[in-house]
Computed example of a mutant assay.
Amino acid sequence: MNSYLKLIRNVLLIGIFVLCACQQASKTFMPGELWPDNNGVHINAHGGGILFHQGTYYWFGEHKIEGKAGNKAHVGVHCYSSTDLYNWQDEGIVLSVVEDTTSLIVKGCIIERPKVIYNANTKQFVMWFHHELKGMGYKAAMTGVAVSDKVNGPYTYLKSVNPNKGYWPLNFPDSLKQKEVDMDTIKQWSVEWQKEVVDGVWLRRDMEKGQMARDMTLFVDDDGTAYHIHASEENSTLHIAQLSDDYLSFTGKYVRALEGKMNEAPALFKRGDKYYMISSGCTGWKPNAARSAVADHPFGPWTELGNPCLGSDDEIKTTFQSQSTYVLPVQGKDDTFIYMGDRWTPENAIDGRYIWLPIEFEHDKPVISWFDEWRLKELPGQF
């Protein structure tokens, strides 16, 4: 090899080395940009959540494929790990859909918003997710659960259910439990129709089969009590439900929250002695203005705080073109939280981007502003 070719080869090798080093040494978040993992591939963990375990963050999310078909589950739930939140290692598929048509998690069903929590008593990692049955669109409105002895799986699918069958919410008055109404005779979205929704018409309808559970998240309180928060009653009302001690089933203890307000994409977190929730309206894949609320207990009552976003009209009306999926408390950094959102691309699901932004507080109200690039607080003046 002559000296000229050697020079070209060395320059190329140096370029590759520098590129790889930069990818592996990222120290900033760049919302909306491609986010490569340790293999240089855009992270594939949509609608996700984070579990911090033994010094490492684990990001679980929906594995998408190209095109519209990617909005259904053709692979399963993907997992990534990181010690700094910037650089992520591919841990592979931790819950796989199957070819067996008798299984509820058959390929082509819908698996959304997987969240994983750790049960210190059973030493098990428990995953819950929004589950729709193949060929039924969004009619099943179930939630599924899977477990593993290892954080990075594989997870074993156990069951899917409509929660709290036969149980009334703790905050539902006796006076409404036997109320009868024919919704077909009431104009949809009229004042009368909306009042009946608030009064629990869909709740009563679903008492025998179990309640609807669509967009969901999990939250574990300081005492180890776990809660499953999900959009219910045709997405009109959130249900906040206590899980069993092993986190594998529902206890029948739950409340209705923000009745009739049409919230989905809930993300619950705790700051000090207050509980906060960020959620979105119900506009399908299209982004809308975020909502926020506060309570003294996961069971509420919840007080609305309004849109947490600051910025231009377009930014705040669309939550920076994103929808909430999780709020991440950063370990070792007091009062530091990250808003995790998805910028959906339903025409090509795999190209969905991640919108991670710092949450600040003004007068005990969460505030989210846009940054093209940002990093966690290390020096004064930084987040």
Results as ranks from 00 to 15, higher is better:
L258D: 01
C282D: 10
D335Q: 13
I110D: 01
A120P: 08
R204I: 09
V116A: 07
W356P: 09
D364E: 11
N288T: 13
P329S: 03
D184A: 10
F383Y: 14
F129G: 04
K72W: 09
T83G: 06
D246N: 11
W370F: 15
F52M: 07
I110W: 01
G67F: 15
F337Y: 15
N119M: 10
N119H: 11
G272D: 12
A213Q: 03
L19F: 13
L170W: 00
F299P: 01
S26G: 08
R353N: 08
M216D: 09
N119K: 09
P31L: 12
A290V: 04
D206M: 07
W285H: 07
Y155V: 04
D221G: 02
P163V: 08
W344P: 00
P173S: 05
L12V: 14
L34V: 08
L310R: 15
S81G: 04
K274M: 10
Q331S: 06
T345C: 10
E192Y: 05
E264Q: 06
W35N: 03
P301M: 09
P154Q: 08
K274Y: 11
W344F: 05
W374E: 11
S3W: 03
G281F: 07
G153D: 01
G40K: 02
E192I: 06
W302Y: 02
R343E: 07
V327D: 01
I111G: 02
Q178A: 13
H230M: 12
R204C: 08
M1R: 14
A226R: 08
L238C: 01
T283Y: 14
V126Q: 02
